[in-house]
Design a protein around this nucleic acid. Structure first.
Ligand code: ZN
Ligand code: ZN
Ligand code: ZN
Ligand code: ZN
Lengths: 144, 144
DNA sequence: GCATAATTGTAATGTTATAACAGTTCGGCT
DNA sequence: AGCCGAACTGTTATAACATTACAATTATGC
């Protein structure tokens, strides 16, 4: 959080109350949260809590690399790697919705050939592995 | 479509009218369609058209590998590779919503180490590249 | 034929996301 | 200090996507 504040100072970004509240919630949760869960948090903090408030804060956080959207969950997590808008892969537990973030250093074999064959311009790459984390696999969340 | 009918015969799957109508729509479209677009199609064909009809047909088609869900679009495409429930990567054009499917032969470098470190069990892998297809890049869909 | 499992029909509801627009605050400029 | 335009906020309304629940029907194996 201190890191984030520093980066905002440095890059002249405005970390307004709603944005800070949303980021704090994500940092504390250590798991993916939906926009509406974040709205609840905003309400608890006495901040305005109509849907656009959360979505605007999330747009800001995602745009500047402080958070990521998890497509599989229609939900959001705090970024666990400092650097700006990097490509990443996510391990998404369907049991507890925790998300582990892994840097994505290498291009993905199999996709580049199709890309070049179709001359497709990639702007964003989504890589999400859905499954069970160690704790949920142990607990048998799949076959209760 | 003939192929699909053959596989259903072989595996004793019931390709009911709603399921067939939805699959036909997807095969003809050559692009991702939402559940509600498919409901319109069902209505046009005189079939029932409440949301669960489309979602149930799509569940069937996805489960048996005849279609894929594109998370980025909350939409669905027909599978362009015959074999059953294979991993795949998708090139998703944000201009025209066409989707190119690429087989995903190799594991993704960078994600396995995190997987094993966290002892995470992967059940499904989502790989979607969002960008512009050649036609849309040409047409300048991004800066109109 | 009869039990069972799979599928269908339908209403109601829940969840996720955006459009639109008036008002306010911020930062740079003169 | 006063003004401008850009960024941001507050709010209402609505669009788009998805599921629950339950009764009714149809297929399949014995
Ligand atoms: Zn990150
Ligand atoms: Zn878990
Ligand atoms: Zn496929
Ligand atoms: Zn296109």
């Amino acid at each position: 959080m201190a890191e984030v504040r520093a980066r905002c100072e440095e890059e002249k970004l405005r970390l307004t109350p709603a944005r800070e509240c949303v980021l704090n919630a994500l940092l504390e949760a250590h798991r993916a949260m939906t926009a509406y869960e974040l709205l609840d948090r905003l309400r608890d903090e006495g901040l305005p809590h109509q849907p656009p408030v959360a979505y605007r804060a999330l747009d800001f956080l995602v745009e500047h690399g402080f958070a990521h959207r998890i497509e599989r969950l229609s939900a959001f997590v705090a970024c666990t790697h400092g650097s700006d808008h990097h490509a990443a892969a996510f391990l998404v537990c369907r049991g507890c919705r925790t998300v582990a973030e892994s840097k994505l250093p290498a291009p993905i074999r199999g996709i580049e050939e199709t890309m070049s064959r179709e001359s497709f311009t990639v702007e964003r790459l989504v890589v999400e592995a859905e499954g069970l984390c160690a704790a949920c696999a142990e607990a048998g969340t799949d076959t209760p």
